[in-house]
Computed example of a mutant assay.
Amino acid sequence: MAQIHPTALVDLAARLHDSVRVGPYCVIGPEVSVGEGTVLGPHCVVEGKTTIGRDNRFFQFSSIGAQPQDMSHDGSVTELVIGDRNTVREFCTFNTGTHKEQGLTRVGSDNWIMAYVHLAHDVVLGDHCVLANNATLAGHVHVGDWAVIGGLTGVHQFVHIGAHSMTGFQAHVAQDVPPFMTVDGHPLTVRAVNLTGLRRRAFSDARISAIRQMHRLIYRSGLTLDQARERLAELADTTAEATADVALMLDFLAASRRGIVR
């Protein structure tokens, strides 16, 4: 059976794998499912229709699966789904989704989520992301894989943050952040390519060179965004190793609804 501290309150309908550990004074609701090897630290509250995968670790005082902070939400059942091997530090708050989208907030796998992080309704967080202390993601924010969000960063609702990007400390993110870019300041500005992150992930010199060329085309060439997109397509034809990276950028630009940081 799951190792449940005597002071924890676990609804009999909750589904916990036998290897789950539940710390003192936790509260777990009836629609919660927790996968193999996951650990819930003291005073965590897990409620709503929440599914948590395997080998996650939640530190103390987190609120997981509460109803969305959306005044139009009618109280109907929506979901929160969390993947595997995530670390969630103290005082984090993850809300379920709303029916404005698919009724789902989703957290991927292998993320490092530091203290006081807030994930609002309908957020989609990818894999291998780092969210530093007090990062706050408003409703409907999407974050790509391997993104890093700096401490005390606020992300406006409906913003998309691209894969392999990085936002600096106290960034005010109100427009979409393209993949591979480093941004900071208020107003937000693209500073450079996230070279440190790319090198840590063993991007080849050819891929990094192509990504730097994408940065120059979008931000340093004086081209309009439509003109830059045309040149990006040509870049994919000349640098075969970077074809997937260019496609990622082009797809992101095509899907942007708030406009990109420029």
Results as ranks from 00 to 15, higher is better:
residue 243 T to F: 06
residue 78 T to S: 15
residue 217 L to Y: 05
residue 146 W to T: 00
residue 15 R to W: 03
residue 70 D to P: 07
residue 37 G to F: 01
residue 32 V to N: 04
residue 96 T to I: 11
residue 172 H to M: 15
residue 74 D to H: 07
residue 46 V to H: 03
residue 47 E to I: 12
residue 25 Y to D: 11
residue 243 T to G: 11
residue 61 F to S: 14
residue 206 A to K: 14
residue 172 H to G: 14
residue 60 Q to I: 02
residue 195 L to T: 14
residue 125 L to D: 06
residue 5 H to K: 03
residue 167 T to C: 12
residue 14 A to C: 10
residue 161 I to K: 01
residue 137 L to R: 00
residue 233 A to M: 08
residue 17 H to E: 14
residue 20 V to R: 10
residue 32 V to Q: 03
residue 39 V to H: 00
residue 228 A to G: 10
residue 49 K to H: 14
residue 85 R to E: 03
residue 71 M to T: 13
residue 37 G to P: 02
residue 95 N to C: 10
residue 247 A to M: 09
residue 21 R to L: 06
residue 59 F to K: 06
residue 213 Q to A: 14
residue 126 G to M: 01
residue 80 L to I: 13
residue 2 A to G: 07
residue 249 M to C: 05
residue 246 V to C: 12
residue 87 T to F: 09
residue 144 G to M: 04
residue 181 M to N: 05
residue 222 G to C: 09
residue 238 T to D: 15
residue 180 F to P: 01
residue 47 E to D: 15
residue 91 F to P: 01
residue 246 V to A: 12
residue 91 F to A: 09
residue 185 G to Y: 09
residue 248 L to E: 15
residue 44 C to G: 09
residue 212 R to M: 13
residue 133 N to G: 14
residue 124 V to W: 06
residue 10 V to M: 06
residue 63 S to V: 12
residue 107 V to D: 00
residue 184 D to I: 05
residue 40 L to G: 02
residue 258 R to A: 01
residue 232 L to P: 03
residue 189 T to A: 14
residue 31 E to I: 01
residue 148 V to H: 01
residue 148 V to N: 00
residue 36 E to N: 13
residue 58 F to D: 05
residue 27 V to Y: 08
residue 85 R to Q: 08
residue 195 L to I: 15
residue 235 L to S: 12
residue 43 H to Y: 15
residue 143 V to F: 02
residue 174 A to N: 09
residue 55 D to T: 07
residue 150 G to Q: 09
residue 249 M to A: 04
residue 3 Q to K: 15
residue 122 D to Q: 06
residue 250 L to D: 02
residue 145 D to C: 07
residue 98 T to G: 05
residue 248 L to H: 09
residue 106 R to I: 01
residue 116 Y to V: 06
residue 240 A to L: 14
residue 159 V to W: 06
residue 73 H to N: 04
residue 45 V to P: 03
residue 39 V to N: 00
residue 251 D to H: 05
residue 98 T to E: 03
residue 219 Y to N: 09
residue 258 R to Q: 00
residue 36 E to L: 07
residue 252 F to C: 05
residue 72 S to E: 10
residue 220 R to A: 11
residue 144 G to L: 03
residue 202 A to K: 14
residue 231 R to S: 07
residue 62 S to Q: 05
residue 160 H to T: 15
residue 260 I to W: 09
residue 227 Q to R: 13
residue 5 H to S: 11
residue 193 V to C: 06
residue 132 A to K: 02
residue 29 G to I: 01
residue 46 V to G: 04
residue 157 Q to P: 08
residue 101 E to R: 13
residue 83 G to F: 00
residue 76 S to R: 14
residue 261 V to F: 07
residue 66 A to E: 14
residue 99 H to Y: 11
residue 155 V to P: 10
residue 127 D to R: 00
residue 140 H to M: 08
residue 52 I to F: 08
residue 127 D to H: 06
residue 129 C to K: 03
residue 117 V to E: 02
residue 160 H to I: 06
residue 260 I to M: 11
residue 35 G to M: 04
residue 93 T to D: 05
residue 207 R to Q: 15
residue 191 R to S: 06
residue 20 V to S: 12
residue 29 G to S: 04
residue 191 R to V: 11
residue 113 I to A: 02
residue 18 D to C: 08
residue 88 V to M: 03
residue 86 N to K: 02
residue 206 A to S: 15
residue 181 M to G: 05
residue 151 G to Q: 12
residue 228 A to W: 04
